[in-house]
Amino acid sequence: MVTLVSIPVLWRRWLVFLVGVVPLLWITYRTVTHQLGADPAQTIVLFLGEWALYFLFASLAVTPIRRLVRWRHVHFRWLQTHRRMLGLFCLFYVLLHITAYLVFILGLDFARFGQQLVERPYILVTMPAVVLLIALGVTSTQGMMRRLGKRWLTLHKSIYLVALLAWVHVFMQVRSSYVDAVLYGVIILLLLAPRVIWWWRKH
């Protein structure tokens, strides 16, 4: 039977890459064709932020799926090969999210940005997450993995903190409905729970 595993790894990489750029192409198309309504800036910023979150979820899902899901002879060990790209797409959409906010909402007025950081704590809480994500992106290469040795894993476990801060960022913006915040919270809990259990068993 033909499964994803039987596709050569390079093709699979291209497939993941395509999935990664589709959201960007989609929002670009909607922008260019004036389909974003009265406040395109807001729509674009929200859209990019949501996709950053989705790629964060995807990269966090790799390990639990790989270790826990097995169906007859189908295993998901091959997913591991694509985790780096999923993580990098998360970083990519985070950077676009921030750039869109700076350009489209603030008009590149950095004085106003400083002011907003102070006035909008939900932006401030993401700062450590952004710094960490950039650090993870920079150290994601094979060379850096080798150079950092054991410390690499420790550093990259900070993605859990990033996930929690991302959730706080969403939660703090809730106005009247908790649907999204609750949904994202449940997803993050489901993704982090196996890690906690594994850690518990080990100690």
Partner: peptide, 15 residues
Amino acid sequence: RWSQASERRLPSGLF
């Protein structure tokens, strides 16, 4: 949670 000192008059251009 945010400043009320300014506003974006819609429609607001992207650039």
